[in-house]
Structures are given as C-alpha cells and as structure tokens.
Design a protein around this nucleic acid. Structure first.
Lengths: 222, 222
DNA sequence: CTACAATGTTGCCATTGGCTACATTGAGTG
DNA sequence: CACTCAATGTAGCCAATGGCAACATTGTAG
C-alpha cells in the first residue's frame, strides 16, 4: 500500500469530486459521509473538518453546480449569431445541463431554498434569468420582438425552461427527445413574444381564483 | 391513559396522515419511520407491516398526492366558462397545489421517476397533460387557437406550468406573487398558441448545439 | 525553538432502517 | 363450539449513519 501522508492535502476538493460522482449514480440518499471518507482512504471524521455537516457539503456542491451551469448559460448567450438562435442556445445550455446532471440540479434547487442558504447561493441561482432578460430586451430594441415588460417575459421564459429542464432531468419524456422538447418550448415562447399580448389577462385583478383551497385532508373523491 | 387496543385498526391511514404532516413541516429528511411509530403510540416495527420500507410509504404518499392534485386539475378543466379562463384555471389549480404542498410535490416527482415506480404512479402523473391537450384541441377546433400539433403544445404548456409550480413551491419568487407568475405564464403561452408558429424552428435539425460540455467532470454520455 | 492553528484519527453515542422471532387478535371453517 | 391461520402489532437484534469529543500529526508564524 502506498503509505498515505498524514495530511491528504486536497481533501476538500476530493470530497466534492467524489460526492458528485456518488450523487449522480446513487442519488442523494446514497451519499454517506462515512462511505465518502472510506472511498478516499481517510478516517470517518475527516470530512467533518471541511464541512460542518452533510448539508454543508451539499451546499458547496450546489454552489459549484450553479457556477458551472451559469458559465454555460452566459457562454451560450454571448455566442455570435442572431438573437433567436442564441435564445435557443441558452435554453439548450440549461436543459442539457439538467439532463447531464439531474441529481446535482435537484440538489442545487433544494439547497437553494433551504431556510439557511447562503446569500451567495441564493443570488447565484438567479443569474440565468438575468441573462434571458438582457437578450429579450435586446431583441425588443431591435424590433425583433413586440415591446413589453422584459422582466416579466424573462421570468416566464426562465420558468418554462426550468420546467423543461426538470422534466428532462427526470426522464419524464417517454418518447419525446430532449431537444424536441427544448425546441418546442422555445418556439412557443418566441412566438408569444413576437406576437405580444393581444389581450393581457394579467392586467385585470380577477381575484376569482375559484380554487377550493381546502386542505389535502379531505380528498376529493373523483 | 386510554389503553390502546392491541390492533390500531387504521394504522396505515394514520401513518400516511401523520407522514404528510411531518413532511410538510420538517421535509423528507425529517421523516423517520420510528418517530412516526412513536407519534402514533405504536411499536417501531409496526409501520413495516404496512409499508415494506420507507420508499414504499413515500410511494403511497405520492400516489395520494397525484390523486388529489389531478382531481383539482380536472375539476378546473370541467368548470363552466370560456376556454381561456379554464386554461388559466388549470394552471392555477396546479400552481396552487404546488404552493400548498411543496414538499409533497417534490416527493411526488422524485418517486415518480424512481427506477422501480409502480405503473399506476407512473401514469397518474401524466393526467395533467392529457387534460391540457383536450382543452387545447377543443379551442383549436373552435378556431380560438391557431391549428397545430395539440400534443406538442400541451407538452410545452405542461412543462411551463410545471416550472412555474416548481419555482412557486420553492418560494423562488422573492417579490412576484404566485398569481402574477401564473397569469404571466398563461398569457404568454396563450398568445403563442393564438399566433401559431410563423417560423417553426423545430423542423430543422440544426444540431449546432455549440455546447462546450466540459467543466464539471467529464460526463458526456450522449 | 516553541506555540499554535489546521488537519486528520480514534473512540463513542443516539438514532435510524431493516430483519427475525414471537404475541395478540379476529375471521373463517370443520 | 373448538381449531386453524392469516393479519396485525411487539420486542429484540444488527449494521450503518451522523455528529461529537479527545487525541495525534503536521506545517508555520513568532
């Protein structure tokens, strides 16, 4: 056996790297700090020196994930070309990432709205929407899209793509390919933005939600 | 002390009910079969008689959740009124459910794409999209929406609303209200479907994904 | 050289999920 | 009615986990 030096040297990075592997192949449930330590040939309490508890490790993992994902998204948005292909590129970057790292994405989102998530984590998760907003505003100024509240449109686009990413990550799409879904979504969104809102239902307060809103306890028997 | 009878009588239901409570207030991580048993004044192995393991309990919980949610969605789709308000109603039913039961929804989706999810669970999760498809096809026949592949449109709508529900459930929207998001999303989707697809980018294969796909590990299983 | 903080190790504990053997109950069945 | 037996609940055990505290090793700053 290669006699390990007393100090691993890069334990923190090694833990994160290995955790990423384990998570993607065994899910978050399959992640054990002790097993992680064993994998790295280190004592079972060593991880505790770098991460207060399991959640701290997951937080760090999520932060890494957001950094990586945002890099791809901004990269796609800054690519050369017309705006619509760039829009599709952003969507692809997001969805592809979700498909490549489904569990990591789930961790990213679950830790993001954890009660005590770091500010950095909380804000870095919103870079994507900023990128989308910039591109939409640019296309509006160029007359390519109908004028409108770019903030609101970006929110909707982000939300829709988030849904696509989620479903793609969960291989919810039995027959349909991921790229088909991505293109179908961007097509519809872009068409809506080109057309603008002829009858903005959002303006009216409505309020007649008509949602029963009773709790789950008394299940409505179909 | 009320001397408990040896047989609880409704342990299974009681377990599910209590589990729902615990989950919503402490998350899935805070759910322990043994604590559940203690809460119900029953031995620690009693739950094992009704649920093979923890996952089986979560599966049952998810099934209940889908049933309840689908009941609301179909209820909204069958409400009287014009099609667009009904479309919004479906969206509201989904998003409101997500906000009311965020953790349950997460459990629903995580168990749904679990490797060994029951067929019933797998298919019941797709009722929502069927409802949306029916409504869209109806509106197309009535000339209210531009003609097009209703299956594809329903998929996109479902996906987008799914994203809205997810973000709403995770209280991702700092300032924006849930209803604002729902209406903004349905507005854009409806506008896109009214306008139709002038330039269906989905037809062309494109393929120039331009996704670097490096970063974060070397995983490129495509 | 020495004090000290960072890093890693060993030992311990309560809790958990899951398993097996056993107890109680009630519903059939002769 | 007596007997069987499956369903349900109990008690005890086990390995694994996360977290904590005490101790060991190392590199470094004063």
């Amino acid at each position: 056996m290669t006699d390990q030096p007393y100090h691993h040297g890069k334990l923190r990075e090694a833990l994160l790297a290995r955790a990423r592997e384990v998570i993607e192949e065994a899910g978050v449930e399959g992640l054990s700090l002790r097993q992680l330590a064993r994998d790295l040939g280190v004592s079972h309490a060593a991880p505790g020196k770098h991460f207060r508890d399991k959640q701290a490790l997951l937080d760090a993992l999520a932060l890494d994930g957001f950094r990586s994902m945002n890099a791809r998204i901004t990269g796609a948005s800054e690519a050369a070309g017309d705006r619509r292909p760039r829009f599709v590129g952003i969507a692809r970057a997001y969805v592809d990432f979700a498909v490549a790292h489904p569990v990591l994405l789930a961790v990213m989102h679950s830790t993001k709205h954890h009660p005590d998530a770091s500010d950095e984590l909380r804000s870095i998760g919103e870079d994507g929407i900023r990128v989308a907003r910039a591109l939409i505003a640019e296309a509006q100024d160029a007359g390519e899209l109908a004028p409108g509240d770019s903030e609101r449109l970006a929110l909707v686009c982000f939300v829709s793509l988030h849904g696509a990413a989620m479903l793609a990550a969960g291989n919810l799409l039995d027959g349909t390919s991921v790229d088909y879904l991505t293109l179908a979504t961007t097509d519809l969104l872009w068409a809506g933005m080109v057309a603008g809102m002829p009858a903005p239902q959002v303006a009216s307060g409505i309020g007649a939600g008509a949602a029963p809103r009773d709790e789950l306890g008394v299940m409505n028997p179909c």
